[in-house]
Amino acid sequence: MNADIKADAILDCVGLYCPMPIIQTTEHIAGLEAGQVLEVVADDKGIVTDMPAWCKGTGHEYLGMQQQGGEYHVFVRKKHG
C-alpha cells in the first residue's frame, strides 16, 4: 500500500478480539465524511482477513495494511452515499 496515506481518524482496537474491531469500525466510520480515511489499529490477527471482507460487504474501500510488530494498522476509506 501507499506508505504516505494519511488517516483522518484513528481507532484503537488493541486488546480486542473478533468481532469487536469490526463492530467498532462500523460505529466509528458512521462519524466520518465520505472519502475520509479511518486507520484501525488491532492486535487480533483476524483483522487481516476480516477487514477486507467487511469492506467487500459494506462497499467501503480497503486501502491496505501495515504490520508494525504485533500490531496491524488497517486503512479504510469511507464510501460515498
Partner: peptide, 12 residues
C-alpha cells in the same frame, strides 16, 4: 450474537 452483530455491521 457474534454472528448477528457482525452480519449487521456488514450491512445486513
Amino acid at each position: 450474537f457474534n454472528i448477528a452483530t457482525t452480519a449487521a455491521a456488514m450491512g445486513m
